[in-house]
Simulated scan of single mutants.
Amino acid sequence: MSFGDPNNPYGQPPQQPPAGPGYGYPQQPGAPQQGYGYPAAPPVSQPYGGGYAPTQMPGITRAAQILLAVIAVAHVIIAAVYAVALAQWDELVDEAGISGDVSAEEFADLGKGVIVFFVGLAAVFAILGLVLLLQYAKGGPAVRVCSIVYASFAIVSGIFALGMYGLGLLIWVVSILVIVFAAKRASADWFRRPRY
């Protein structure tokens, strides 16, 4: 038995020419890495900031919920003020003495229609706010997004309430705070938490 016999189990294996860079060779800068075995798995992204899932509503999310209730109550007050104005509308028209003029009565009816629209709009805003408010404990990410959109529209609705005892300014400030608090990461983590 010689060392050159390829069938000799105790012999020296035949020499193969080097295959170039690879295992055991230093990598050249800019040369692609060659891996052996299975490809590397993609990194696992942990939801909720590294495996953290809140079990209690964070304080900032609770504050957003409370401020959302303030916006809803403010819209209930706005609806009540407009409803009182609507109830007194006919008396004000009679006192103005425009009951005989047809064009003036048409404008009065148009004004009454505008007030009815504002009563309905404020009532709808109040109902939507209460629905969102009740969804904070068990709702998902859609509740957070709807809260931000609701507060954005509440800023616009606050324009129509500027003359009501500073209620419009209150709605503006509270709506901006709801947007900021709902956009925070702690609120996002709360609404993305797993619900079993």
Rank of each mutant, 00 (worst) to 15 (best):
F3E: 15
P6E: 08
N8D: 13
Y10P: 00
Q12N: 14
P14W: 10
Q15L: 12
G22M: 09
G22I: 10
Y25N: 15
Q28W: 03
Q28C: 00
Q28K: 11
G30T: 04
G30Q: 05
G30I: 00
A31T: 07
P32V: 04
Q33F: 13
Q33S: 06
Q33H: 15
G35S: 14
G37D: 10
Y38L: 14
A40P: 13
A40M: 13
A40H: 11
P42C: 02
P43S: 11
Q46L: 14
Y48A: 03
G50H: 12
G50W: 06
G51A: 08
P54M: 01
T55M: 12
T55Y: 11
Q56Y: 10
Q56C: 04
I60L: 09
I60G: 02
R62E: 09
Q65S: 05
I66Q: 05
I66L: 04
I66A: 09
V70A: 09
V73H: 08
V76F: 06
I78N: 07
I78Y: 03
I78K: 09
A79Q: 14
A80V: 05
A85E: 14
A87V: 02
W89E: 03
D90P: 04
V93P: 04
E95S: 08
A96M: 07
G97N: 09
D101V: 12
D101F: 12
V102K: 11
S103N: 15
A104F: 07
A104L: 15
F107L: 15
A108D: 08
D109M: 02
D109P: 01
K112V: 01
V114F: 15
I115R: 10
G120I: 01
L121W: 05
L121C: 00
A122P: 00
A122V: 02
A126T: 02
A126C: 00
L130C: 08
V131C: 02
L134H: 01
K138S: 07
K138R: 14
G139R: 12
P141R: 14
P141E: 13
V145K: 12
V149F: 03
V149E: 04
F153S: 09
A154Y: 04
I155N: 03
I155K: 03
V156K: 06
G158C: 04
I159H: 06
I159D: 03
M164V: 08
L167H: 07
G168M: 10
L169W: 13
L169H: 09
I171N: 00
W172D: 00
L177P: 01
I179Q: 09
V180S: 03
V180H: 08
F181A: 05
K184R: 15
R185Q: 10
A186D: 15
A188H: 08
R195M: 11
